[in-house]
Amino acid sequence: MTIIKEIKNNVLWIRLNRPQVFNSFNQEMAFAVQGALDEAVTNRDIRAVVITGEGKAFCAGQDLAEATDPNGPELQSIVAKHYNPIIGKIRTIEKPVIAAVNGVAAGAGANIALACDIVFAGNSASFIQAFSKIGLIPDSGGTFFLPRLIGFQKAMALMMTGDKVIAEEAERMNMIYKSVGDEMLMETVEKFAEQLAKMPTRGLGLTKIAMNASMTNNLSQQLKVEEELQTQAGSTYDFQEGTTAFLEKRKPEFKGE
């Protein structure tokens, strides 16, 4: 079983489960993660997603034993069929996707984490753009997200050198949302994810659509996107419940609809 799935309090937990190889990806695990993310789209009981790793690592990237196996998938297929769909699904799921980085996140593992909406990391965790060490380029959206998070110069330096960035430094660089003590990581993420799962899920999903669009839009295009999405948000049950609760001075009970 290459991943462990659990739905708890409307949160889908996806735990990468190849700890003997630091949760490095093979084809089976890539397809299993894709399937779990598809479930997050269709299952209305799921209102937030957490991706984390079993054991001491988050994810060490691609399993090089598979990548160099003459009978294994070709590199182009690994990128196109394993990683690109995972990144696409993380970004298009209209629900919050949170990474809980519990150890090293290297190569594709680092960039899968950075593609998530919000990243928490334990203090002993680290992020490594390891591709240059073996003559490859960053994939899994790394060349898109990292420069937007930390700036062109820093991203370029990290990609060329493959230097390790510890969690506290990653937070200072705005690479991640927050670093916390290792012993507090899962409890912190659980509380945070369950808080988001009780919020207006449809509104959060529309916010995600707007943020995705802002990556490439100019101001006038983005204002039009906001107008269209705000109109959709205003037609939801949760908007009606939120405004009614405000006027009645009570706590709203959102349904995610």
Rank of each mutant, 00 (worst) to 15 (best):
R202T: 14
A115H: 04
S220Y: 11
V41W: 11
K255R: 11
D38F: 08
A30W: 00
A60P: 00
Q62R: 12
G53S: 00
G103M: 08
E187C: 04
S214I: 03
L229A: 10
T2M: 06
L158R: 15
A130H: 12
I3A: 02
Q62K: 08
A108P: 02
N43Q: 12
C59Q: 04
I46V: 15
I150S: 06
K5A: 05
A32P: 05
A193N: 11
M211E: 09
K164H: 12
A213V: 05
L229I: 14
I14Y: 00
G53C: 06
A32F: 03
I93W: 02
E183M: 05
G55H: 01
R47I: 00
G141C: 07
P85L: 01
N102D: 10
D38Q: 12
T42C: 00
Q27I: 00
P138Q: 02
N17Y: 15
Q129F: 07
G72S: 09
P147T: 08
Q195G: 11
G203L: 14
Q27A: 01
N212Q: 09
L64P: 03
E94I: 05
I51V: 15
I93L: 15
A210N: 10
N174T: 09
Q222S: 09
M1H: 14
Q195K: 14
G109R: 11
N71Q: 05
A57D: 11
I137W: 08
E66Y: 04
M184D: 15
A130Y: 12
N123F: 10
M159D: 12
E54W: 01
A57K: 03
G234F: 04
E194R: 10
Y237M: 07
G162S: 06
G203D: 06
V180N: 05
R202V: 12
K255F: 06
G103F: 11
V225F: 13
A233R: 09
G135C: 14
E194L: 01
V21I: 15
P138K: 05
E226V: 15
Q20G: 07
F58M: 04
R18Y: 00
Y177Q: 10
F239H: 13
